[in-house]
């Protein structure tokens, strides 16, 4: 199987992850994260290449990748916004936050803006319930959000 769609660094990182476990399947999630880290999502060619490095079938690897919401098998925007829609944030206005985001971006949940800038995803409890409502942009957690203000999230990471 071709591994040409992976960089040498990626292959090295995946091989290193393999050392942590008794068998190669166990490194699958780590390996998919490694690829996603640099590309934002995991396309078919990369999935096959990762499967090749791990010695697994692409179908097996895909059965894992599609189980986990943090692994993307479809292209996502440059900024992925995950707003918490679980109970504590809901009590503090996450519905209104979601509505203001949808309106501002002109997209629905699970969609990406046509310019490829944003993807909007509902997400289960982010574990910062005392600071509700909260959301993540990329890997960064933003807390104590104003449900009427979508811009704080959209501008996260710009110019700082």
């Amino acid at each position: 199987m071709s591994t040409s769609s992976l960089t040498p660094d990626e292959i090295t990182a995946i091989r290193k992850a393999l050392d942590t476990y008794l068998w190669p399947e166990a490194a699958a999630v780590d390996a998919l994260y490694i690829v996603q880290q640099r590309h934002g999502w995991v396309d078919d060619a990369k999935l096959e290449a990762v499967a090749g490095v791990l010695g697994l079938s692409p179908a097996y690897l895909d059965s894992l990748a599609t189980f986990y919401p943090l692994l993307h098998r479809k292209p996502v925007g440059r900024k992925v916004i995950r707003y918490c829609d679980s109970v504590s944030c809901w009590l503090m206005g996450s519905d209104r936050l979601a509505a203001s985001l949808r309106e501002r971006l002109g997209i629905g949940e699970g969609e990406t803006t046509s310019d490829g800038a944003y993807t909007l995803l509902p997400h289960p409890c982010l574990g910062a319930c005392h600071q509700a409502p909260v959301a993540m942009v990329a890997d960064r957690l933003l807390t104590g959000l104003d449900p009427a203000d979508p811009d704080t999230l959209l501008e996260e990471g710009d110019g700082n």
């Binding site: 166990a26 490194a27 780590d30 994260y33 894992l64 189980f67 986990y68 919401p69």
Partner: peptide, 27 residues
């Protein structure tokens, strides 16, 4: 001691599903 970052599903917190997750099986 190793760290393992999950792909993110509530079921992974269930003790035996966690074992499957860590083994690289469907959790």
């Amino acid at each position: 001691i190793h760290l393992h970052l999950s792909g993110g599903r509530y079921i992974c917190g269930e003790e035996t599903a966690l074992l499957n997750a860590l083994e690289g099986k469907r959790p």
